Computed example of a mutant assay.
Amino acid sequence: MRGPEFLDRYEGGLVLAGLLGPYAHRPDTVVLALPRGGLPVAYEVARRLGAPLDVFLVRKLGAPHHEELAMGAIASGGVRVINREVVDELHVSDAQIDATAEREGLELQRRELRYREGRPPPDVRGRTVILVDDGLATGTTMRAAVAALRHQGPERIVVAVPVGATESCEDLAAEADEVICARMPEPFYAVGLWYRDFAQTSDEEVRELLARAAQERGAGVEQPSVM
């Protein structure tokens, strides 16, 4: 297997931004990151595109005794997406799903309060939303985000990640209006393998990046144009 594709999430964001040139400096475009790992990626994308940056809260539902394996996901607005293949294979009961969803729902609310600090969610009606994460493995979390966003009436949803499993990127094309996976290595295994530095993104880093993006945008900081 070849080595990592990216030094870190910021480099992944720069590479991804280069594939999103048609969306640069368009007033109808907003970049939404899936925290926490999606924030460093989305920060670079938003800077290069000259677009506002915000978060879209989604929580993975880890399977019992296999927390790293997504059996589903929940998103803001009460949306729940279940990966029936995983649930059936591991014989997960409805009660276990409900208990996990309740626990993760509390964490989703905590992050919503901590990251937004009183700011309302962005109004995406009639806009192009570029939904960014650091990668796609099963794609369950991203599917929950797309489903939740659809209820808010955007004109277009673009899923954008630096790296993803080929099958997941292809499957999401049926749900999003456009899917951009900068790299689709085979075999895939896991998102973290394709970054040299895949340290966990902290709540503090999320808040700092959101504040920095807002400050730079308010100050009219110019970024190199995206080719």
Results as ranks from 00 to 15, higher is better:
G3T: 11
P4F: 12
L7N: 09
L7R: 15
D8T: 05
Y10K: 15
L14G: 13
L14F: 06
L19H: 13
P22L: 07
A24I: 12
D28M: 09
V30N: 02
V30H: 02
V30M: 03
A33H: 01
L34Q: 10
P35D: 10
R36Y: 01
R36C: 00
G38M: 02
G38H: 03
L39K: 03
P40Y: 03
A42D: 12
E44Y: 07
A46K: 04
L49G: 05
D54H: 03
F56H: 15
V58G: 00
V58D: 00
V58M: 04
R59V: 00
L61I: 02
G62Y: 09
G62C: 06
H65C: 06
M71W: 05
M71A: 05
A75S: 11
G77R: 00
G78C: 07
V79F: 00
V79H: 00
E85T: 15
E85Y: 13
L90M: 14
L90D: 10
Q96S: 15
D98F: 05
T100L: 13
A101Q: 08
R103D: 05
E104N: 08
Q109W: 12
L113C: 04
Y115D: 01
E117C: 09
G118R: 09
P121A: 13
V124F: 00
D134V: 04
D134T: 04
G135W: 06
L136A: 04
L136Y: 03
A137P: 12
T138W: 01
T138D: 02
T140R: 01
T141P: 12
M142A: 06
R143Y: 00
R143Q: 09
A147M: 01
L149M: 12
P154R: 10
P154Y: 10
V158R: 03
A160T: 13
V161Q: 00
P162T: 06
G164C: 10
A165F: 08
E167W: 11
S168P: 07
A176W: 07
A176T: 09
D177Q: 11
C181E: 12
R183V: 06
P187Y: 08
A190Q: 10
A190I: 05
D197L: 03
F198V: 01
Q200M: 07
E208M: 13
L209H: 04
A214Y: 03
S225I: 08
